[in-house]
Every structure is written in C-alpha cells, then in structure tokens.
Design a protein around this nucleic acid. Sequence first.
DNA 1: CTCTATTCGTGAAAAAAAGCACAGAATTTG
DNA 2: CAAATTCTGTGCTTTTTTTCACGAATAGAG
Lengths: 205, 205
Amino acid sequence: MREKKIPVGTISRLFAYLREVKALSGLNIRTVSSSTIGERLNLSDAQVRKDLGFFGSFGTSGAGYNANELKKALESILRKNQDWNMCVVGAGRLGSALMIYPGFAKDRLNIVAAFDINARKIGKTIAGISIEPIENMADTVVSKKISIAIITTPAGQAQFVSDMLVKSGIHCIMNFAPVKLNVPEDVKVEDVDLSRALETLTFFA
Amino acid sequence: MREKKIPVGTISRLFAYLREVKALSGLNIRTVSSSTIGERLNLSDAQVRKDLGFFGSFGTSGAGYNANELKKALESILRKNQDWNMCVVGAGRLGSALMIYPGFAKDRLNIVAAFDINARKIGKTIAGISIEPIENMADTVVSKKISIAIITTPAGQAQFVSDMLVKSGIHCIMNFAPVKLNVPEDVKVEDVDLSRALETLTFFA
DNA sequence: CTCTATTCGTGAAAAAAAGCACAGAATTTG
DNA sequence: CAAATTCTGTGCTTTTTTTCACGAATAGAG
C-alpha cells in the first residue's frame, strides 16, 4: 500500500484534514466521517477516503473515524510531532512580516534566523531575531538545525541565494521571488507568486 | 478553439509567459520560441505551445514568436492593460506587509484601501492608506472601484468578512486565513495557506 | 437478536492534464 | 535557389487525479 506513488495534492490535503480533525476534536466530537471532513473543506467524501487510503485503514464502517485516533494517525504520517526550524533570506517588507507573523507557531514552524545582503540591515533585530549576513548561512543552518528556508529577496538575487542555501544543506525552500529556481533533484521548492495568484484571479472575474 | 474548457493552470502559466516575454523583450530579443520560454520556467515547449493554442496562433513555423506581438497578444488575452484596485481586510502583520509590499505595482495591482475591525487600528495610516472600519466597506468598494479583496484576518473572522465583501460586490478574493470560505458560484477565491504549504514541503524533505 | 441505516475501503471508470510526435510552414545556409 | 534546419500547431497517447459505485462491516434501533 505504501508503494503506490502518492499524489502531490494528497499530502497537502492531509494537513488540512488534520487541522479539521483537531478542530472537531476540540469541540468534543468523538467521531468524524469522511463526509464531515469533506464538507468543511469543499471536497468529496470519496476524496477524503482515498487520500487516507494511501496510508492505511483508520476508520470503521458504519461509524466513521474516531477523531482522536485519526488525529494521532495523521500526526504520525505527517510527522507533526516535531518542530521545524526555518530561516528567512531577505529581511525586507515581506521577510520581516513573515518573521513577525504569529500564524506559524501553532504548526510548530519556527523562524529562528534571518539573513540579508544589505549591510544596513545586519544586526537589526526583528521578532527577537538578529539579522545576519549571508556569509553566516552555512554555519547558522547547521548550528540552529534549520531545515526550511524562505526566500523573500528580489527576483534578481533569488537564484544566488538559492544556491547558497543548497550548499548549506537546505532541502526545502519556499520561494516568494517570481523566478523559477534551479535546484538539484533532492531539493523541494514551493513557489508562492502572489502577483501571479492575484492576476489569475482577475482572469476569472 | 475558444470553446474548449481552459485548464486552470493554463491561465496562471500565461501570466508567467507574459512576464518572461517582457523580460526577453527588455533584453532586445526580437524572437522567442516555445522552448526558450519553457526553459526559463521549467516547462516543456509543448506545454507552452499548447497553452497558447487555446487562444489562437501567434507564432510562425521555423521562427517562433515575435516577442512584441506575443506580448501584445498575451496582454490582450489576460486583460493586462488595466489596473486592478484591491483592498486588504485585516490590517495585522500580514495585511500591513502586503500594503507596503512593493511587488504588486509593476503588475498594476494596487492596494487602495484597508479595513479592520479593531477600533484601535482605525485611522492609522500604512503606506499612505488610512485604515477604515469595516462598516465603510460597501461604500469604499464602490467609490474606489475595488475588484479584489485580500483577507488577512484571523481564521475565525474570515467567513464573516467574506460575506461582507460579497455583499459589497467583490468577486475576487485572495484568502490567507486557513479556512475554506463559503461563497457564491460567481465569486472566485484563491487560498494562500502558508503553513500548509510549508508543511507540505516538510513531508518531502 | 434482527433489521435498517451508515460509512468505510477500493477497484473500475471517467475526467483532466501533460507529453509525444510529426506534418507542414518558414527561415537560413551554402 | 535548393537543401537543410528550425519551430509551430495539433491530433493522439500517456499519465495523473478525481469521481463513481458497491460489497462488506458496523452501529444502533426496536
């Protein structure tokens, strides 16, 4: 069952399922069904069951899923029992905002370092984090056990910064710069192109 | 040719093609080929041609596409000859950052208003925009010709705010709150769930 | 304890998206 | 100016993702 290739969207949805199950669990709901979860996320019940099916059988026919058990199962599948340390590269408007953004903590995503090229920004402290020169990157990534990097530099610097991150041992990059990064196969990049997303929205208006 | 249903991804990619064509055009490159564009975006040349093919034939065999003509064609298809006015709802960390963010302007995406529930924030000015109470929404959306709304409120308020926006006549919403919004069919929502995107990244690490 | 109403798990079918491959058209080269 | 090369546009194929639909299992009512 583990050997089938898992659709890209499945993993992302599993995180959403976990969030919903937690919410329902918090409302003292003991049992959830695939359709309950589906309704809350605008997905079909079949989709929910199929996604879960990639990893095993967690429910009981006729009853649904025990909220607590499903929560535990998802946390285990998704390795949600550990913290992830992240760094921001490019402490401009967006980078600073992400450093201050309070929404990551509850998902155990912690920004623990920030880098910038601009000498004037070095040493400044945002959200308790002192901005370091990018020359520190390799050392800091190791010493602070950073596994995710968020690139918020201008487009022109993104590839250079990406190369440095890869050399420093980073395998997960979230890229806000509107350029396609060139990275080795074993490095995962998630592009977040806000302008493009907004523009796409306008098309369907 | 127009009648085939256009894949969701196609539109988003077309905006990327336009960006690349502009960049190449800026380098005084007269002619671009589907493979040139594809390489720059990590897409196959076939994909580029197929996407363009939904809207017509813009190239010449053997030569490729005239950069300037393709640019014009894409701008026309994507209605990039107009400005889009946007508002931010929720002037917290993220909302403020987006207001200040300089990356939208070059795509003619302008944030022209901001709303918040928190009385203490009303009247404050960020990036030249005075934060208004949400009661003003319906009026301001009309008077400032706003067609896109960006929701950066906490999850708990997102649905309420979304309802207000819809009532005010908004048809495009970019939603940063990690909840699925319930909206009428003719309202398009683009979810940007940063935590989920980061988490998904961790899975493949 | 039996009957009914649910709900799961999962192959099989359908739909959507991406990639292939090649005829034909245009350009460049020698 | 003919031959070689380049590159588009597109029908067809393949792959990927989603939906369907139904047997089997279970809970709960009576």
